[in-house]
Design a protein around this nucleic acid. Structure first.
Lengths: 203, 203
DNA sequence: CATTAATCTTGACAACGACAAGATGAGGAT
DNA sequence: ATCCTCATCTTGTCGTTGTCAAGATTAATG
């Protein structure tokens, strides 16, 4: 049985792992990835600086768990966007790509964490699975488009997936790195690449 | 006059700023971006831990200067690739995009540094200028392609530039973050998006 | 040659990740 | 009910880091 959460003065937290993840997510939003330290997470969760050690041996383990959560939300966001779009293949693909970019701009810190290669442990099974689900989400909406365009070979489909993924990922990353906010696009909002006209030609 | 470089036992270094940048570049290659500390750079340059302070007030300043150097090499690499290609617009664009990706894979640490938004000071004039030159490099090779495809409006050209930039940047970033090395592309080398067939249609 | 200012060193501090050793108490065994 | 076991959390410490302050050294200037 889980101890009463109202009792603040107890030695064992009761659900520290979950509390650490929540603290990590909120700190990530507020302070960014660089301001997220094990000690800060521990403090926000109300435990001592070495409290997390038993649940997350190292900072990389905590970040990996957070990244897996981020990938889950990422997939859910793309799924939502796809569900709100029309049933035709091009609408489905465009909506998913839009969901990709929209998630990145709405959750820049989560997105940055998800693709910060050196900070994560990619041998972790949960992270691998959630990241694979995100890839699959894009592949799923690419399939009908490939069929529509008469792309039959596996290599052709792979090319299409890679192209779509590269475009949305590159655009999202350029947005987050601030490369589209200066000089050329000073006043107005940065333009957005049009996936539909890219894949189906200008109307 | 620059003091003799052979005299090892002297208080003033003589060209510490340059030595720090060189030490930073070599450390970046060997240890990666995370292993690059001010103290390590100072040690490699042969000065005390607070030696860099006068030339680079903070770590962000040093990284910014290194990123500017990286952008210069980046532009030179794309320029080289473009020079070795045929004169027709599509070859020029394909070669430049190829140079973009090739530089990223050949200098992953430099590339990572260039686009690590939070670690750099983007108000720095030198960094802004070198990054602008890199953007211009892509815009230059996009222009003839836009003309060839009958794209006349500024918005259309901007769309093309943004598309090309997103594709090459996204692909480079996916490569560096290791997203293309697992599961689906286990054994063989990861595929490469074909800029030419993308922009000019399959032959 | 004397003064000034730039340059580098030494020393210190707070924050960090990580480790070790001990305190606490929850849950099962008896 | 009592004891035991072990997961859980705390306290203390170490080495490293970025940054600041104060002093030492020397180049440059007049």
């Amino acid at each position: 049985m889980v101890p009463a959460m109202t009792d603040k003065s107890r030695y064992h937290h009761g659900d520290l792992r979950h509390a650490l993840l929540q603290a990590g997510l909120s700190l990530l939003e507020e302070q960014g990835l660089d301001g997220l330290s094990l000690r800060a997470v521990a403090a926000r969760a109300g435990v001592s600086h070495a409290g997390p050690a038993h649940h997350f041996a190292t900072l990389k383990h905590l970040l990996t768990a957070l990244a897996a959560i981020a990938f889950e939300r990422f997939v859910a966001a793309m799924d939502d966007a796809r569900g709100r779009a029309g049933p035709d293949p091009r609408s489905q693909l465009a909506a998913t790509g839009d969901g990709y970019v929209t998630f990145a701009t709405a959750n820049p810190q989560l997105f940055r964490l998800m693709f910060s290669a050196t900070r994560l442990d990619w041998s972790d099974a949960h992270l691998q699975e959630t990241a694979r689900a995100a890839r699959q989400q894009l592949a799923d909406v690419c399939e009908p488009v490939a069929a529509l365009r008469g792309i039959a070979t596996p290599g052709g489909r792979e090319q299409l997936q890679l192209l779509v993924w590269s475009v949305v990922h590159g655009y999202a990353h350029l947005l987050l790195s601030g490369q589209l906010h200066d000089a050329s696009c000073a006043t107005r909002a940065p333009p957005r690449p049009d996936l539909e006209s890219l894949l189906f030609g200008p109307p």
